[in-house]
Design a binder for these strands. Structure first.
Lengths: 209, 209
DNA sequence: GTCTATACCAGGATAGAC
DNA sequence: GTCTATCCTGGTATAGAC
């Protein structure tokens, strides 16, 4: 791996542990195995290292949405997605658990989550990314999904957005609670399962039981 | 107000804006209207100022639970609380809105929320306080409340804890989203209302409609 | 209990040799 | 592209006069 890339990766780890201000360029350089002065041949400033992290995470997340088959942009055509058409409640349960565990254990996502929380009030860019990905996009996606499922007669009729928030908010809370404790992810999964069971119990249409 | 108290208050404001590392003792002193050196007659270190903030918030929150009539400790006797016995779903809606707005606008709570998010990975104490108050205690409280309401026949039978998380998690998500935007609190309230309406629609027992 | 002056150090960044 | 040496700034904290 190029030295430049290694600097970005090590900085990501350190910023996620101790925050931007809590990490010195010397520490980053040490982690890479060079002197701090050498680092300035690759980046012009500490801020520029941070910016490269933002770019790295953006890139990583773009790749993810391809892999997971989950649309990232809100203007994406929901009806066109195969994903939606065939998804029933059991699949919902299954895929939620997988996405949850993924978010909890993926090294980029979990570090991004930590940095976003620490730097949200100092850095508009990371704050915006966090809100878009983990709040706005996630809720929009679930809303569209549930609206489709209501149309398809899988889900009880209702306010799709409110239902989506009811479904997603517990996942968000669990991510907040366990983002830094992936060792306790079994506890988190147990709670998640009972949440989804409760959701299915309440929202599944009678004729699908 | 004593100078010592004023230092704590100004530091609370500044730490909530720019974080612990992002705030210098000079800035705190300026906000108070004294020189930074004078500050050391009241506190022996910057860390000690931070500790006084933790104490201040703890005190404030203790006072709150008296005012709001909401038990803070999990070992408190739930059945004994008058609050529980007479609460029906309309009251739930009403009190949730009030507590939500309070959390969003109370200067101590909102600043505590911000500091807790920024310093959670550097400071075990504030991290623990945040989790206890906004996660564990809140959920325990709601769980006991809903269990009582199920017994009383107000709420549909079910997994009280899962129902509690379904109810509380959207509030938590909204607090996260709007903690620093109390100007947009009307937007937040609107979403909150539709969440509670959806909750009531689903969980209210038929004979109570 | 407030001030001025100052010690001390760490962090970000640059210069220039190799 | 890495190193050593160095600069500069700003932050925490202390000393001592008033």
């Amino acid at each position: 791996m190029s030295t430049k890339k290694r600097i970005t990766e090590e900085a990501l780890t350190l910023f996620a542990q101790k925050g931007y201000k809590g990490t010195s360029v010397k520490q980053i350089a040490e982690a890479v195995g060079i002197k701090d002065a050498s680092l300035y041949k690759h980046f012009r400033s500490k801020q520029e290292i941070f910016d490269s992290i933002v770019a790295l995470i953006n890139e990583h997340i773009s790749n993810l949405s391809d892999t997971l088959g989950i649309p990232q942009k809100e203007n994406q055509n929901v009806e066109a997605s195969i994903f939606y058409k065939k998804l029933d409640l059991d699949e919902l349960k299954d895929i939620s658990g997988k996405v949850f565990i993924f978010y909890l254990t993926d090294p980029y996502i979990s570090k991004f989550w930590r940095i976003a929380h620490m730097e949200q009030y100092q850095n508009d860019q990371i704050y915006g990314m966090f809100r878009q990905i983990f709040m706005d996009d996630a809720i929009t996606y679930q809303t569209d999904l549930f609206a489709e499922m209501m149309k398809a007669g899988i889900l009880r009729e209702g306010n799709a957005r409110a239902v989506a928030i009811s479904f997603y908010a517990p996942i968000f809370l669990l991510l907040t609670k366990y983002a830094d404790h992936s060792d306790k992810k079994d506890d988190a999964l147990e709670i998640l399962d009972s949440q989804i069971e409760e959701f299915v119990r309440v929202y599944r249409k009678a004729d699908h039981e």
